[in-house]
């Protein structure tokens, strides 16, 4: 689904990513981890086609993204970022309909078909009950679900997440990620997400990639990657890793005073 080969990228004189390669299979749920400034978000921007890499290439669904128009890209992939649309007064339904933009004719309005897709997206994102409320007037968690509905309405095969649950309370974090996982499982939606929280990443992702100083430090299943040694090496923090009692996946526990 997504093939990243030898990406080196950065801003002006500053190199952020060095020779990063990875491969995401269709239907996979991949998490990107790493400390602040390691290049996670830069990698997403390269995959989005917003940042052109100095070398290397990104192959999305068999095509080099540099040869795609933005419209074609947006028909294939969608991206949910953190804190979206804080200052717009669009209603939830209007936001969901914006997701149809890459599919509409240049000067056209949305058809009944587009409305139906947006309605379904809102239902999938569990936000249809607030369809006619302005997004500026609902809670942060509800707003992120509204923009998630927008991403779903795009009908993507690849969903990019850029710390989508930052600043949300725990309930809303889980609600949103459960939604993502359901679509990942049921619709074979491929997901690549940047995560801040190691435990959430470990719990939801099939595979994790850990970046450090612009290079891939480790890759593998959560069980392979989330170890006290790696966390000490990458984050410089001594932690205890236990097994989650329900899922059996690794769970990072902070042990105060153990330094």
């Amino acid at each position: 689904m997504l093939l990243i080969q030898g990406i080196t990228a950065g801003y002006e004189k500053h190199i952020v990513l060095q020779d990063v390669s990875m491969n995401v299979a269709p239907g996979e749920f991949v998490g990107l981890l790493g400390p602040n400034g390691c290049g996670k978000t830069t990698l997403l921007r390269v995959i989005s086609g917003i940042l052109t890499p100095r070398s290397g290439q990104v192959i999305l669904d068999g095509r080099n993204i540099l040869t795609m128009t933005r419209r074609t890209w947006a028909q294939t992939a969608a991206c949910l970022m953190q804190d979206m649309g804080m200052d717009t007064t669009f209603t939830v339904r209007e936001v969901a309909l914006l997701g149809r933009s890459p599919h509409l004719p240049r000067f056209g309005w949305e058809s009944h078909h587009d409305h139906a897709i947006a309605q379904k997206a809102m239902e999938e994102a569990d936000i249809a009950h607030l369809a006619d409320r302005p997004v500026s007037a609902i809670s942060g968690g509800e707003r992120q679900r509204a923009f998630f509905a927008m991403c779903l309405a795009q009908g993507p095969r690849l969903l990019l997440l850029d710390e989508p649950v930052n600043h949300l309370d725990l309930g809303h974090q889980i609600q949103l990620l459960e939604c993502v996982r359901r679509l990942n499982r049921q619709n074979k939606l491929t997901v690549v997400g940047v995560f801040h929280d190691l435990n959430l990443a470990s719990e939801y992702c099939d595979r994790l990639l850990v970046l450090r100083n612009g290079r891939i430090e480790a890759a593998g299943t959560p069980g392979e990657v989330v170890t006290p040694e790696l966390i000490d090496r990458v984050y410089g923090a001594k932690v205890v890793v236990e097994a989650n009692a329900v899922s059996g996946r690794p769970h990072v526990v902070v042990a105060a005073g153990s330094h």
Binding site: I50, T69, R70, R71, Q75, M81, F90, L98, S101, F107
Partner: peptide
Amino acid sequence: ILLARDLNLMTLGEESAAHLGLNV
């Protein structure tokens, strides 16, 4: 008026507009 939909996308921020298929 013809391109007004692009303005809608722009109000979401330039990165979001690009994700929605706009050549920002």
